[in-house]
Design a protein around this nucleic acid. Structure first.
Lengths: 340, 340
DNA sequence: CATCCGGATGTAACCGCTTACATCCAGCGC
DNA sequence: GCGCTGGATGTAAGCGGTTACATCCGGATG
């Protein structure tokens, strides 16, 4: 039976003839190796765990899809647990996965929960998604670079008064995007940006509310950059209700390129993030850590690039709207007519 | 050590005092039971496998979410494998899951692949999603009922000439929706419906193409019912390009209530399917089959209810458009002016 | 006081595989 | 002919639990 094991694992030399016999016998007996016994013996399950918070549809599925194909390719399986609303639940699952998996991919964008980071098992290969922690491997999105790319786009169109709708304060992605915005604004010579930064929490409603506030600013910004697409969509709705033309009177930009971004009116200019790639790379990093436990010191980083997607929601600010003249719909309407 | 096992499983009587000692020791030693050893011994992994074809974002994540929460609640884990483009790949994964899971939830809506059904392990509890097979447990969506509900809605508004954009011929969901449409049409006294049924394959492009064909029918239908939302969205785009007012000249309805359905212009009237519930119930059925293997004869069925969601894309047909007058854009434009 | 009883705990076989080590055997050089 | 060598295969000791069965022990019973 040692020989059978050798044949099935193919890692040792077996006589050609014997090999054939074993294979034939296995075939006729419908033999299927017992996975549990093998795991017990080699202390490896060829399974990786994925723990996600309660993230939404497209993101959730794309991350998993990315990890899934990479894992399948490497002969690994994935044990998934999503929609954890609180840290306690997450820790519980993390505990239950112990022993079942060879490594873990954990997404916990809310850096606030230091308790979680402390409780992560230290004896298991682990990579973090969209959050960092000294001494642990992590994959992040190039939020800073993406935000700067969008700002370059807007600035290139001629915008200077650009408002920004922020994400949750404790969210790592949101913070980086904000950092990118601020840096770009300084580059445009605008140093006092605080009044141009509106609070938001990544929901459509918060985007809606923030957009209404932006309309009251004087001078009124000519462009609005939301830290994610959901808020940009909310903003678009608010602007439509207020009768503000997009992009005529106000350019709007988002971040993420969620699927509906191309269907809203007007289609949204945004930053695309290749989420499946995020998953793929996370698995790659994890696999490396699993296969060479003593491998290069932990703390490896990998960053996912972003792409600027220009659609119809952004354009150059019209000359007359850059002045802070109070909006007068009839008048503007006539002027528009003259122009065309 | 037998006693330790008894304490940890709590299934046998142990002296109060001993129990405390064991627990204390386990605590100080950071003892964590080895899952593989336990599975080997009790021949159960407390894990269920989920195998999905290459389905899209929202559906994928919702099904998994539904199963996930139900499973977690019951102390089970889920092993996921998605995005299988062909049957061979699916079978491979199915094989690899053998021994790793106590049961399987498989989605294979393309009934055409009888080979798959034959190759499904027969010694493992298994429930099918959106496809049926004699003698196997299955959960389906109430496609027939949903389609009828939508038809009742349209008929109630006064529509009689209703076109239908079909889904892939071998897709079980698509077939049932078509059946619902036909039955309802007979109820409306329309017996020859074939010319009102346009081919489609669940993609936006096919919906776009089908809508253009519908515009050429005489008498022109006053309503269009697509077998899924993606095609309805495509149709909406086609109608907008052709300058056909929705819902004024043509009511449009879809099926699924995908997230963007509420963001398109006009918001889409559709049939909502509670997908998370689909997953939840599938797990429930599977759990039953796992816990009483000899349980009631296999072949249990469960059906997910659907809900009619009325939005802005449907309304009563204007009186003049129910006649079969040939469309004349200028003329219709003037008439409209007179009405308002 | 010997026997019996039943609850609590200890013992060891077993789950099915991997793998270090033992064994076997053919070919080789001396 | 003999000891060696090395490749192929057999043997058995784990891996870390579960659980049937044996054992132990204090109290009730005859």
């Amino acid at each position: 039976m040692a020989t059978v094991s050798r044949v099935l694992n193919g890692k040792e030399v077996v006589r050609e003839e014997t090999l054939r016999q074993v294979l034939a016998a296995a075939e006729t007996l419908h033999y299927v190796p017992n996975v549990a016994a093998r795991s017990l013996s080699i202390r490896r399950s060829h399974t990786v765990g994925i723990v996600l918070p309660d993230v939404h549809g497209e993101f959730f599925s794309e991350v998993i899809r990315g990890i899934d194909v990479a894992a399948r390719h490497a002969g690994y399986h994935i044990l998934v647990s999503g929609s954890h609303s609180d840290v306690g639940e997450m820790l519980e699952v993390l505990g239950a996965m112990r022993g079942r998996v060879d490594g873990l991919i954990v997404m916990a964008p809310d850096v606030a929960h230091a308790s979680l980071h402390q409780s992560l098992p230290s004896d298991l290969p682990l990579v973090l998604l969209n959050s960092t922690d000294e001494g642990r491997d992590a994959i992040t999105i190039d939020n800073y670079g993406g935000a700067q790319a969008m700002m370059r786009h807007l600035a290139g169109l001629g915008h200077v008064h650009i408002a920004f709708i922020k994400g949750p304060a404790q969210n790592a992605d949101a913070r980086e995007r904000l950092r990118g915005f601020r840096h770009a604004m300084r580059g445009l010579g605008v140093t006092a940006t605080r009044h141009l930064e509106l609070a938001g929490d990544f929901t459509e409603e918060s985007g809606h509310a923030a957009a209404l506030k932006i309309l009251t600013l004087a001078p009124r910004p000519t462009a609005l950059f939301a830290a994610n697409d959901a808020m940009a969509v909310g903003a678009l709705a608010a602007l439509a209700e207020a009768g503000t033309a997009v992009p005529g009177e106000m350019s709007v930009a988002g971040f993420d390129d969620i699927p509906i971004a191309r269907y809203v009116a007007p289609p949204l200019t945004t930053i695309r993030v290749d989420i499946a790639d995020l998953g793929r790379r996370a698995f790659g990093l994890l696999l490396g850590a699993i296969e060479q436990p003593a491998g290069s010191a932990a703390g490896r980083r990998d960053c996912i690039a972003t792409t600027l997607i220009v659609r119809k929601s952004s354009c150059s600010p019209a000359i007359h709207t850059t002045t802070s003249a109070r909006p007068d719909r009839k008048l503007r309407g006539r002027r528009k007519g003259e122009e065309s």
